[in-house]
């Protein structure tokens, strides 16, 4: 049976969740960690998706919106529970387990907080194996599970239930999140444990807990492989055009934030000119004009100074980084996976 995520496990999980995660604002991350510690109690049970009975109702829980906003407008503490309860009311049955949407920084902790508050186990796995900007960009979607109905709990007691076609969730969600303060906790993708077993990227929670142990190499957080592209120094950061801001593919709504471009020069070896195209995350890496990495693989800049992941918004000329590519789960490299999380999903005509 399952294992218990206790205080030590939480610390390892939170450390592991940051190994390749971008977009983690320090204050909101610390806040999420404190929040989790305060509700952890004696611990949360971590189970494999096939351990509960197959008909057990599972719910994905995630933070939506801006993590920076979370640090500025503090949570009341009951948001995860309220969101799940609202979804339970709509579904007419209790959730038997909680699962993460993705496990990047705060998003690894919110499902844990929900599981602790609800007193249900946390399923070992998540819906991306990495992080994507859109709620729809999950292996759950790839497996035919709809994110809706979706319940949203805001920091000031708001509760919103969205019921719509699968492709319109993000579109409806975004203005609502903005109007409740920039962030909210969503409970979504209701499905049975049997379905979850089929669509889950498995065992990523325990993987990150292992990766979060002191002294464990960074590659431990990348189950499907990681490679270092090169070490390079940032020469300039430019606004970019030609992707994302233009109307995206009809299946997906346009991405939040504006595209930018980071130009680097390889510090050693070939001295290549490297360009990272970013839109919410780094979607494309070019070396001397040749494509060396794209989404759905995760491209990160790791500062050579402190070993921390450099957020796209924090990239500045002069900074030296290792560019690492974390391979995505195999399902993302299928035709359907590429359509949902590949270059074209980000508006790159590749």
């Amino acid at each position: 049976m399952g294992r218990l995520i206790d205080r030590g496990g939480l610390d390892r999980l939170s450390a592991g969740s940051r190994v390749f995660a971008t977009g983690a604002a320090e204050s909101s991350y610390n806040l999420a960690l404190d929040w989790a510690r305060s509700v952890l109690g004696r611990g949360v049970e971590l189970v494999r998706a096939d351990e509960p009975a197959p008909e057990t109702r599972c719910v994905a829980v995630s933070l939506v919106g801006s993590t920076t906003a979370l640090g500025e407008q503090l949570p009341a503490g009951d948001e995860p529970e309220r969101a799940v309860r609202a979804l339970e009311r709509r579904l007419g049955e209790r959730a038997g387990a909680v699962v993460g949407l993705n496990l990047a920084a705060e998003n690894a902790l919110i499902p844990l907080i929900a599981a602790a508050a609800l007193g249900v186990p946390l399923v070992d796995g998540d819906g991306t194996g990495r992080v994507f900007p859109l709620v729809e960009q999950t292996t759950y979607t790839l497996g035919g599970i709809s994110p809706a109905p979706l319940a949203l709990a805001g920091g000031s007691g708001e509760l919103v239930l969205l019921e719509t076609a699968a492709g319109r969730v993000e579109e409806l969600l975004r203005p609502v999140v903005l109007s409740v303060g920039g962030w909210a906790v969503a409970a979504c993708y209701p499905m049975t444990a049997g379905e979850l077993t089929r669509v889950l990227v498995p065992e990523t929670v325990s993987l990150l807990m292992r990766a979060g142990e002191p002294g464990v190499p960074r590659s431990a957080a990348a189950p499907y492989g990681v490679r270092t592209l090169c070490r390079a120094r940032i020469m300039s950061v430019e606004g970019s055009t030609g992707h994302g801001a233009d109307p995206g593919p009809p299946a997906l709504p346009s991405l939040p934030s504006l595209p930018s471009s980071i130009v680097l020069r390889e510090s050693e070896g070939l001295g290549r000119l490297v360009r990272l195209e970013a839109h919410n995350e780094i979607v494309l890496a070019l070396a001397d004009g040749a494509v060396v990495a794209t989404v759905p693989d995760q491209i990160c800049m790791i500062s050579t100074g402190d070993g921390m992941v450099v957020d796209v918004d924090k990239a500045e000329p002069g900074l030296e980084v290792d560019i690492m590519v974390v391979s995505a789960a195999p399902v993302w490299h299928t035709e359907r996976g590429l359509a949902l999380g590949g270059p074209r999903a980000f508006g790159l005509p590749l």
């Binding site: 970019s240 195209e277 070019l286 494509v291």
Partner: peptide, 10 residues
Amino acid sequence: GGGWAVEMAM
């Protein structure tokens, strides 16, 4: 349509 496109074209 952008630096990345021109670089790839080159």
